[in-house]
Write a protein that binds this DNA or RNA. Structure first.
Lengths: 246, 246
DNA sequence: CGAGCGATTGAAGTTCTTCAATATTTGTGG
DNA sequence: CCACAAATATTGAAGAACTTCAATCGCTCG
């Protein structure tokens, strides 16, 4: 049942790096340990020293930080196929926590194995490095979003990003997808109060709807324009800066 | 005159990674090309494909993004000794631009040479990767700062970070240092209007002063507390979460 | 069927932005 | 080294966007 696990990870690496057959095989042979986690459970705690990276197989995992008051800021969403903390291989002490936002399935892959692979195959080391850089580009774009945007722009941008990322993996047929997170969590990602997220979603109701954990994008072009969204930073290899209409 | 250049970069790597004598020598032998840039000139343009990384020798370089309106968000400050875009080795197309905020000296180091080093010495590849992860942690902390903090917290945190980073390299004797940037640029880094930066600095005048490009921290503990600052994320190797009083 | 979590609404208050005017500093050419 | 121009800092006032608090609604799940 976990057979597809590493293939997804490999597909992601392949979309950004060139790997030989041997290298690809080496990645597919990585040992891992699947684990079901329930919604809201913390997979990695702040400051924890870990000896494995976590690959998201199913569900949504959030990376977050919090200030001394306990206010949370979500700094990334990790979807199916994402290695949530590949950087932990070279930085085992977690600077951010990971939490499952929905019930999720996660594969643990030991640092020892990842490190051995990287040491033996320079191209894999480079692919891992590159993967982290892409995550960093996404983080950078989030910072712009949080810093510059007003409420509508922030929400619109986040929804565009999630739609694009889901689509690149899932080949979803439509601009409608499951997103089992709460409006409060949307607020933690965009630095908005839950109340204001709610009002902003209402003001966007002609463009996108969000109800019962399902997003439906009614007017992609307008949503992308409101969110000032350009997909290049995601490096999905899909090309173009907008989702082609289907 | 550029002799010290690579030593600083090496010192930075050493503070986070363990490198053998051979590896250290290899880094010190990297060819580079020094360049003086005037204040405000753009070193790397958005979307540009580059074939070299830029090491800051002197001055301050900002990494920034901008939205379609042209509003800028500074996502990092790079100080003397920082490799401003090491990640460009694996991601040559720039997702953020680099601009000198003061007149600065920068060394160009070719991707070809960096890549060769990484391929030949896995430990160096790992050190480069780790350096990028640390930058990413800093970015993550900035996002929390911009997202969660109020004006005083944001400004205080940024000043604490800069003080710590300057100190780790320069062994400055006091909590006073040159910072040749404008209040408007402080605003672009913290997502605040220049006007509000000005008022916030005034409200902090018992704790820190900023005048003519010079920061003077009068009460470090209070500043760190206002900014909710804990230095671990900087990985400077100095240890402890506050600057010991001198 | 009830309990609880998330969504929604209203109202009041706060923080920050914007605009516009003035003061001060810095940099440059003569 | 001075004078001028440009950049930066400072101040006031008005307004916009968002937060907070508190109450109610509604869905889902045990």
């Amino acid at each position: 049942v976990f057979a597809i696990t590493l293939e997804r990870f490999l597909r992601r690496l392949n979309s950004r790096s060139v790997l030989s057959g041997t290298e690809q095989q080496a990645i597919l042979s990585l040992p891992f340990e699947g684990e079901n986690v329930r919604s809201k459970s913390e997979i990695v705690h702040l400051g924890q020293d870990i000896d494995h990276a976590s690959l998201v197989i199913d569900g949504i995992v959030a990376r977050f930080d919090q200030d001394t008051n306990g206010t949370r800021q979500i700094t990334a969403f990790h979807l199916s196929g994402d290695m949530a903390n590949l950087g932990s291989v070279v930085q085992p002490q977690a600077r951010s926590a990971l939490q499952a936002l929905s019930s999720a399935t996660v594969a643990r892959i030991s640092h020892v194995d990842l490190r051995r692979l990287a040491k033996r195959h320079p191209a894999i080391a480079e692919a891992f490095w590159r993967d982290c850089i892409v995550d960093s580009s996404i983080l950078s774009r989030w910072m712009v979003n949080v810093g510059i945007g007003d409420a509508r722009q922030k929400v619109a941008h986040l929804l565009c990003e999630l739609a694009t990322r889901y689509r690149s993996d899932e080949l979803a047929q439509s601009l409608s997808f499951e997103l089992h997170i709460s409006q409060a969590q949307l607020g933690e990602a965009t630095s908005m109060s839950a109340v204001h997220v709610n009002r902003t979603l209402q003001s966007l109701k002609d463009v996108v709807t969000f109800s019962r954990g399902r997003i439906e994008i009614l007017d992609w072009k307008r949503l992308a324009s409101i969110g000032d969204f350009h997909a290049e930073y995601l490096q999905t290899g899909v090309g173009g800066d907008q989702l082609p209409p289907k």
